[in-house]
Each structure stands twice: as C-alpha cells, then as structure tokens.
C-alpha cells in the first residue's frame, strides 16, 4: 500500500487529509487549518503553511495568489511562560505579589 504523503509533520496531516477537508467543503485556509489541525503544532506552520497553500490552490483550481495565509499568531516560536511572566507589560491585580518576591 502506498504510504502517507505528510504535509504537516507536527499534526500528522497528510495530502489525503487536505483532499478530505476540501471535499467536505472546508476550503478556506482557516477552515482547513481547523479541520485538519495543520499549522497548529510546535512549528505553527513554518514547515507546512506554504506547502498546504500551494496544494490547496491546486485542489480548488485557484491561482496561488488567491490563497491568503492563515493569521500569523504570536509567539512566533514556543516561548516559556517564565520568560513572559517578567515582562513589565503585565497588568497588576490588587493581590499580585511584588516583583522581587
């Protein structure tokens, strides 16, 4: 049996999954992202967004330029909570302990 053609390795999303999503009517790249999970893993689409976009253009018979990217969400790389917790941007609640605890 021929093997899987993987487009998003983080989420094990295959070309067949993309075809299945399109066949079910989920053709907007945001809908495809939600239905197949592609681009939602640790790499957040770095490896798969362009690949899926080009395949989606082919499957839906559109020029690639008609396929927008899904929304770019921060953080652009996995970021530990401990790093973010010290940013001065944080809102302070009345019961927040002081910074130098």
């Amino acid at each position: 049996m021929p093997g899987k053609i993987v487009l998003c390795r983080c989420e094990d999303m295959t070309l067949a999954d993309l075809e299945h999503s399109v066949a079910r009517g989920y053709t907007d790249i945001e809908e495809v992202k939600r239905y197949t999970g592609f681009g939602t893993g640790p790499c957040q689409g770095k490896e798969c967004l362009a690949v899926v976009g080009l395949q989606l253009a082919r499957l839906t018979g559109q020029p690639p330029s008609a396929i927008p990217p899904f929304t770019s969400r921060p953080p652009l790389a996995p970021t530990p909570l401990r790093l973010l917790a010290r940013a001065p941007d944080a809102h302070r609640f009345p019961d927040d302990p002081p910074d130098d605890e």
């Binding site: 939602t40 893993g41 640790p42 957040q44 969400r73 921060p74 953080p75 996995p78 970021t79 530990p80 909570l81 401990r82 790093l83 973010l84 917790a85 010290r86 940013a87 001065p88 941007d89 944080a90 809102h91 609640f93 927040d96 302990p97």
Partner: peptide, 25 residues
C-alpha cells in the same frame, strides 16, 4: 504582549511547575 505577560505571571504563580512550559499561540 500585555495579555501574554499577565497570563504568564498569574499562571506561573498558581502553578509554578509550568514555568518552563512554552506558549505556542
């Protein structure tokens, strides 16, 4: 960033073991 920092501050206070857990999105 205000949200991210506030959430990180409150969550690591409530569950300090999550300090090295990473936010993806």
């Amino acid at each position: 960033l205000e949200f991210l920092a506030t959430y990180a501050r409150r969550l690591t206070r409530l569950m300090p073991i999550l300090g090295d857990v990473k936010i993806l999105r």
